[in-house]
Amino acid sequence: MREPLREIDKLADQRRARAARLMNRRKTKTAYLFLLPYLALLVMFGVFPVCYAIGLSFFDTISGAFAGLSNYHLALDDFRLGQSLLNVGTYVFMWVSLMVVGVVVLASIIDVMPRWLGTTVRTVYFLPGAVTSAAIVVLWLFILDPQVSPFSFVFSLVGWENRFQVIDSIGLAGVFTLMAFFAYAGGWIVVMHGALTALPGEVMEAARIDGCRPVGLAWRIKIPMIWRTVALMAVLSLANGLQLFVEPQLLGLAGPQLARNDWSLNQLAYQYAFALGDFGVSAALSTMILMLSVSIALWIVLATKFYRID
């Protein structure tokens, strides 16, 4: 009696497994179906333009003839390139550092607040992120002008009388860091706080019983458990920061004496395409910026074994 039953069980198991596999395959298919519109758009507006730009960078703009690396030589010979690289490098370093420290600290503070207060504060942090970066530039130009700024008392304490002195003292990289921090920090605080709340309660409980105080709990237990989210934020911020364009480009709104058309690498690429009509050099510069951000991101991902599942 036992034998036939076992046979039946086996058969049932097999059938169940096949059904599960079928189900899985169907699920995957549905997933791809849902992904399709995104993938189509990605190819049209993401992958194709990048490939087109890479192709463009090897051809001469006028004759259309293959130009080898000459566009790259021209771009690398530009007298402004070193300074722009330094500018963007300084900015990215300041911004990413500020994001990592600021967002993690703020999210950890929210995490230990009473629930109602935490939610309110989180929403407040998120609000500046709802304003587009172009509008933020205009807003900051007001904030940084001692004549009209609501914080002019702060500037007068330090002895800054006009916008030039303010911007000169903070430095353009510093100004853009502040602009970008307030634009992007709110969103990441929400993400980081989400990661913190998802941490298992029993681990926290155990740590607390072992005598861990809130600061120690955050530093020794919580942050090590959410480092992947922090690394993801750093990679995305870095890629975003290297493409800095809108903020320096819009400075001229505050008057021609503040206008900078060559502060960032992307602005140089823009100048080549739209002031000089040299799309080849512009594409070469853009390609190099892309390579730079891809290699830094790859380095971070590989060095931190980001995608390893333990």
């Binding site: 006009n162 030039f164 002195q165 000169d168 021609p256 004496q257 503040l258 206008a259 900078r260 058309n261 060559d262």
Partner: peptide, 12 residues
């Protein structure tokens, strides 16, 4: 633009 980049900040 060139004057704004070099001269204006210097004088300011």
């Amino acid at each position: 633009s060139v004057i704004g980049k070099i001269v204006s900040p210097a004088i300011a």
